[in-house]
Design a protein around this nucleic acid. Sequence first.
DNA 1: GCAAACTACATTGCAATGCAAGATAGAACG
DNA 2: CGTTCTATCTTGCATTGCAATGTAGTTTGC
Lengths: 123, 123
Amino acid sequence: MIPSQMLKGTLEGCILAVIGRKETYGYEISQQLEYYGFGKIAEGTIYPLLLRLEKNGLAEAVYRQSEVGPQRKYYRLTAAGEQELALFVRNYRALSRAVDNLLQETKGDAVYEPQDKETVAGK
Amino acid sequence: MIPSQMLKGTLEGCILAVIGRKETYGYEISQQLEYYGFGKIAEGTIYPLLLRLEKNGLAEAVYRQSEVGPQRKYYRLTAAGEQELALFVRNYRALSRAVDNLLQETKGDAVYEPQDKETVAGK
DNA sequence: GCAAACTACATTGCAATGCAAGATAGAACG
DNA sequence: CGTTCTATCTTGCATTGCAATGTAGTTTGC
């Protein structure tokens, strides 16, 4: 279920993308991420991340009443947030290409030629 | 060039993939990664990671002489390392699918209906 | 009314990991 | 000898996902 280390750096961008689509709040974001196949992302991950986005000026928030529970804190992207999102997409594509290049050759398992002889040495 | 946070968790798997293709050593791995589009990965990243792989039984190493410089420490995957690599590939694919799902809808910028009624959920 | 369940947000402290900076050392070349 | 390229390693730091925990409003059932 997607190891946490692999989410580092990616999750922030993904949450920017979620917010960028439509104004939304933490609890809903966590449901969205699950829907998209990220698995259950802990609340202890999401809320601090949202606060960080706000603190860094990438998102801004307003409280609104809910008819079904406590107040919700709705986030939307700032201009800086949209730039950051665009940057994330570029970076993610770059990583994705690199990994795909590599794994593609890994599949077949024998693309590189055999190398020179052994000259063993202790380890 | 690919922010460091985004490499977390992914880099280890990629290095497993590089080693899995053919026995190789740290310095060459760094050149391979650059060739594949990962950018320059610091040596302070690669060598500790290789030591960790060895310590965790995912790779094993032998020293060999080089004709052009100091000794090289060649790594190859253990059986456990190959399993770990296979696991990484599965996890990476899962993440990749999730992000692609999300970004795909982000592109057009207006895939979600302007709702405020529930009727919720994904498209 | 009261307990449970769901919604909703937040904080604390920890663990994993990429990286900068710096050290060490062999080989080749002018 | 000094510089450059090859090659490995260590220390300490910053970032960030997450478990654990706390708070609080709303709804439902007894």
